[in-house]
Simulated scan of single mutants.
Amino acid sequence: MNATVTKFNKHQIYGILKNYHWMVKEIQRIDHYLSETDFRGAAQYGIEATLPKAQGVVGKALENEVIRRVNKSKRLQKYIEEVNFINERIPLITDEKEKVVLDCLLDGMSLTGISKHMGISRVQITTIRDDVVDKLARD
């Protein structure tokens, strides 16, 4: 198991488990977006190229795009840290029912959906999820 710098409390872990499924998709989407470098300014040729240009129009647009990409990159890093935190701790879950509940949560299933899937009450699923969170929160 790799050492993770970031430590999350139980409340944060509940949120990560709830959002894990879409965060993985968002990591892929942002990574793809950031790998593209398709920004096109208006190229000018001939006499237009020698005329004075309005200062800051293209520069401001490019600056805004850079800021947007930096913010996306920060969000990407946050999602990666959260997903890695869970993935590195999966081996801590050894009970079979806990493994199934965790898998279902990571797949994006609701507690009610997991309850129906496993044929046990939602209260029992909530208890199992709480036990999983306790184990994931350990050092």
Rank of each mutant, 00 (worst) to 15 (best):
M1D: 08
V5F: 10
T6S: 11
K10D: 08
H11V: 15
H21L: 04
M23H: 09
V24K: 10
K25D: 14
E26G: 05
E26I: 15
I27G: 13
I30K: 05
D31T: 12
H32L: 13
R40V: 06
R40I: 01
A42K: 13
A42C: 10
Q44I: 09
Q44W: 12
G46P: 14
G46F: 14
A49Q: 13
A49N: 14
A61E: 07
R68N: 10
N71F: 14
S73P: 00
S73A: 10
Q77A: 11
K78M: 03
Y79E: 01
E81V: 07
V83S: 00
R89T: 00
I90P: 00
L92A: 04
T94Y: 09
D95F: 07
E96A: 15
K97V: 05
K99S: 12
V101R: 05
V101A: 08
L102D: 07
C104G: 08
L105R: 14
M109A: 10
G113V: 04
I114R: 01
M118C: 11
M118D: 01
R122A: 07
V123L: 08
I125W: 01
T126L: 09
T127W: 10
R129G: 07
R129C: 07
V132C: 03
D134P: 07
K135S: 07
A137Y: 02
